[in-house]
């Protein structure tokens, strides 16, 4: 009885600590949300609290003055382009490493190559890459950035898809081979339909990293018209330096698609992001 009461009290303390830590995250986010609907006149008197007068026009201003239709299209183009290119090359490679020749020398060589590739800091190659892209006329184009993003995410995607495909029963492939399926058909008809869950997880993580990516976005896209949302938001903080309502609304517009996806696919996001770390 005494221990039960003690347990209960200690569980209150636990919850108190957990709630406190949750508040350190929720409150700053709330401030951002409040600011996004606050008229600029109110910022001086009421910096952190809920606005006295709600002004949803901040979102409209951000959308129109910030030219968000264009910017969203840019970011979406980068995401979709990267998904297509990255998932294709990574899917093919993972299929080869997991199904075609899992015990071959390829697995060791390519696996080692990609592992080294993950640990190279971007700063080592960003400048020569920049000069290469300049000579190839890929600088300041969205396709140029798509190629970079696809390559940067390729090791992670390949490892993740491979680890899933390794669990597929080999009998399925043997049976399909007996029915006369070609190697390409083994990939498109057997491996792909069976491993859609891992492709979905990979797609979510790749979309997240591309949408949020900053370093390559500010370096490789110079024209405002082609800039994705992360680098345009960076220019906003000086362009609309005194209009915090607009900048906050613009930030929320950037975070919203990710937050919504996260709500629907939280398990996949968390599993994908942590597996990327524990394998890298």
């Amino acid at each position: 009885m005494a221990t039960a009461r003690f347990r209960q009290r200690s569980s209150y303390i636990n919850h108190a600590i957990l709630i406190f830590m949750a508040l350190t995250i929720i409150l700053p986010l709330l401030v951002l949300a409040f600011n996004s609907i606050k008229p600029s006149s109110e910022f001086g008197a009421n910096p952190l609290g809920f606005p006295n007068e709600i002004r949803l026009m901040n979102y409209y201003d951000a959308w129109v003055n910030g030219n968000y239709t264009q910017i969203f299209t840019n970011s979406l183009t980068l995401v979709i382009g990267t998904l297509i290119l990255n998932l294709t090359v990574s899917g093919l490679a993972a299929f080869s490493l997991a199904v075609l020749n899992p015990k071959g020398i390829q697995t060791i060589v390519v696996g080692l190559y990609l592992l080294v590739g993950i640990s190279i800091p971007a700063q080592l190659f960003i400048l020569p890459l920049f000069l290469m892209w300049k000579t190839l006329y890929l600088l300041d184009t969205r396709i140029g950035l798509i190629i970079i993003y696809s390559a940067l995410n390729a090791p992670f995607a390949t490892f993740l898809i491979r680890s899933y495909m390794l669990q597929l029963p080999t009998e399925l492939f043997e049976a399909a081979k007996l029915d006369g399926a070609s190697v390409m058909q083994l990939f498109t008809r057997v491996a792909l339909p069976l491993s859609w869950p891992v492709f979905l997880t990979t797609a979510l993580i790749v979309s997240l990293t591309v949408w949020n990516e900053f370093l390559f976005a500010i370096t490789f896209i110079i024209t405002d018209e082609y800039k994705p949302i992360s680098s345009i938001l960076f220019t906003f903080q000086s362009r609309f330096a005194n209009d915090y309502g607009l900048v906050s609304a613009a930030s929320i517009l950037m975070a919203a698609p990710i937050a919504i996806l996260f709500m629907f696919f939280q398990r996949r996001f968390i599993a994908g992001l942590t597996s990327g770390a524990t394998k890298g």
Binding site: L92, V110, L129
Partner: peptide, 15 residues
């Protein structure tokens, strides 16, 4: 099957 990923990664990172 491995060639595309090696090619693109070599082109962007290794080279």
């Amino acid at each position: 099957f491995l060639f595309p990923v090696i090619f693109i990664h070599f082109f962007v990172v290794a080279f």
